[in-house]
């Protein structure tokens, strides 16, 4: 059992309220870094000093926030109105278990029972505004005694390994966080490495933008978990990425083109060290690279991601070999990163 993935995925940290996950990561890395601080946005920034061989400053980013819900109101019968934080398909929510607020009050998401639904209702997607979180409170006052307006709610899933794969909530992006923790536990790099466990990625890449400005690095590497659609499909379309085929390398997404020099370096590293990899289907989506690249000078950045099925559901699935390969590829990519690679004439 990978305890690191277990601890990180089971922890809570919905965008804008990342306290718990931050504390857990801080405790995991404190002994392996030279200094750390929390910036104004709430991102955890840690410095691991290099050997002095290279003058570069390198940032490695992994967002620690997850998609979730926020309490927006109370019904007289004690149930909670809510809205989503981050991108959701409404079809994900009905019948799921959530933990609400810092006290982790257990709640369930319910709606109209199927028996009481008309055929038309049964054949329509239930929208968020027709669902409620039920914590068992008898009335509004009882609910307010347990939960505050604005409290975040996160899914509840126990981490579980199924052979080479694992199921959990929030692999997006605790898989990236875990990989970054492992990078910090390794021997020093030739340069000063700034690890940024950033906030608010799911609501617009905001934590990384501020963190990159503050760190002002020469180059940045983003560690992510990217959606895999490698399911049976009648249409001949790309699965974005597939589980078990290795780290996925971003070239272009809906926001930006990843720095081609860094991408080339990552690919060469993979080939040299015989690490499997796959190019993520160019096009949609986006990672913190998009924010980091437009900060300051700007900053060259690229992304390595763990493929994950069923993103933004309580039951994401990754392949543990892919994860191990992401750690290895990121580590070797950093060890081999030189001034020449990011130098611009």
């Amino acid at each position: 059992m990978n305890e690191l993935l277990k601890n990180l995925t089971e922890a809570v940290g919905v965008s804008g309220e990342e306290k718990e996950i931050r504390r857990i990561i801080r405790d995991l890395i404190a002994d392996h870094v030279d200094e750390w601080h929390v910036d104004t946005m709430g991102s955890l920034i840690a410095l691991k000093k290099g050997t002095g061989a290279s003058p570069l400053r390198v940032m490695v980013d992994a967002h620690m926030d997850e998609v979730g819900l926020m309490v927006t109101g109370f019904d007289s019968n004690g149930t909670l109105k809510f809205d989503t934080v981050g991108g959701f398909d409404d079809r994900t929510l009905l019948g799921k278990v959530v933990q609400v607020g810092s006290e982790k009050v257990t709640g369930v998401i319910g709606g109209r029972p199927v028996h009481l639904s008309t055929p038309a209702q049964r054949n329509s997607v239930v929208k968020v505004d027709a669902m409620r979180i039920d914590i068992g409170a008898k009335n509004e006052d009882a609910a307010k005694g347990k939960v505050k307006l604005g409290d975040r709610a996160a899914f509840v899933t126990a981490y579980e390994e199924l052979g080479a794969t694992a199921v959990a909530k929030a692999f997006d992006n605790r898989a990236g966080c875990a990989a970054l923790v492992e990078l910090l536990r390794a021997r020093p790099y030739p340069f000063d490495l700034y690890a940024a466990f950033t906030v608010q990625e799911e609501v617009g890449l905001r934590g990384a933008q501020a963190a990159a400005y503050g760190i002002d690095p020469d180059a940045a590497l983003v560690l992510e978990c990217t959606p895999a659609y490698d399911l049976p499909n009648k249409n001949d379309v790309s699965p974005n990425v597939a589980l078990g085929k290795g780290p996925s390398i971003y070239v272009m997404d809906s926001i930006t083109v990843q720095d081609p020099r860094l991408v080339r370096h990552i690919l060469q590293t993979a080939v040299t060290h015989n690490i499997p990899y796959q190019i993520r289907q160019p096009g949609g989506g986006g990672t913190n690279t998009g924010a980091i690249q437009r900060t300051r000078r700007p900053i060259p950045a690229a992304t390595i991601a763990v493929p994950g099925r069923y993103a933004h559901t309580p039951t994401m699935m990754i392949n543990l070999d892919d994860y191990a390969h992401v750690v290895k590829l990121a580590q070797l990519t950093l060890q081999g990163l030189t001034t020449e690679i990011v130098k611009r004439n």
Partner: peptide
């Protein structure tokens, strides 16, 4: 109720019990 099975955990009672998740292609596919 098919509207609420996506994203649920299940146990498949095969030769032995196996954990599974109910998944689907994303709607846009």
């Amino acid at each position: 109720d098919t509207r609420q099975v996506f994203g649920q955990l299940v146990v498949v009672h095969g030769r032995k019990n196996l954990t599974g998740v109910v998944g689907c292609l994303p709607a846009r596919l």
